[in-house]
Amino acid sequence: MRDEAHSRRAAKRLPGFVLAVPAWLWLTVFFVVPFLQIAWFSLGEKPGMFGTHSNAVMSLDRYAEAFSPTFFTIFRATLWMSVLGTIACLLIALPAAYFMAMKVPAHRRGLLVALVMVPYWTSFLIRTIGWKVILSSEGALAGFLTDVGLVADPHDLLNTRGAVLLGLIYNYLPLMILPMYVAFDRVDSALGEASKDLGADRLRTFFQVTLPLARPGIIAGIILVFIPMMGDYVTPAVLGGAKGTMVGSLIASQFLTAQNWALGSAMAVVLILLTMLIVVIAIALMWCVGWLLHRRSKLVIGTVPPPDTRPHTQEVVTA
């Protein structure tokens, strides 16, 4: 009886997904459509001195132009810095996240996580300017390093590739620590104890039990760090000067200075596609390495019988 009334009322009601329609429309009009327009512009050209874009003649010429030696050199530098930056973030974050999740008493972990999040929620631009102050030629660090003799000239710190790399590592480090922390936090400590009971030392337990179990968090961290690094535009603008240009700055200059929207659009599309491609390849590589290690350390218990006599008793246990 009541179920019948219920379903009759439900039928008269609007379907539930209607609630998501405003957000869906909003994101379509101001996220999807603008991107499609960029993709469309990238097939056009810059008409004359004062126009920004024209699709009168359709061609792939802008893509050929986007792969010019200048763009390619800067793209390679950007890729190199992002890969180095991601690896550095990984190596810095791994021990810290492991310590926070496994060694710190449970009631203090929340505070540490909050402390990691404070810099992340502080203005990105201001934190980068903080590094500009630290690295500036008038700063104490430059003076000290020059006195010690590590640096020849106090102006050598700022406006270099190294400064940009430092800024990138700094700015995205919280995005690597947080997912790794969550991953280590979810690893069941009983598995580590079981590994030790079975005679593995601590190093072997870490590399063969804990680390493989935390792999999803590590992959999430790599994606969260690498993608924004490839598109960063603020860090090189503040710390890099003329020497630290990255692809983001190049694309920005096409839109803001050169007013060549067609070329800028093509560069942006190339950046997105190549970034996605690299991420997919990197993830595939990581899974392959993981699978190979897994295969090597696989343990078969019991004698493997000849296939024709007892085919159903084989038991496989993996380490």
Binding site: F30, P34, F35, I38, F41, T52, D232, A252, A268
Partner: peptide, 25 residues
């Protein structure tokens, strides 16, 4: 819809910026 939200969250801000400028024009 979840895919759309995911794309919005992972797209570098610079792409949003350069796509919105021509769209507003």
């Amino acid at each position: 819809f979840t895919l759309l939200l995911l794309l919005v969250s992972v797209t570098p801000e610079i792409v949003d910026g350069i796509a919105l400028l021509p769209w507003f024009v």
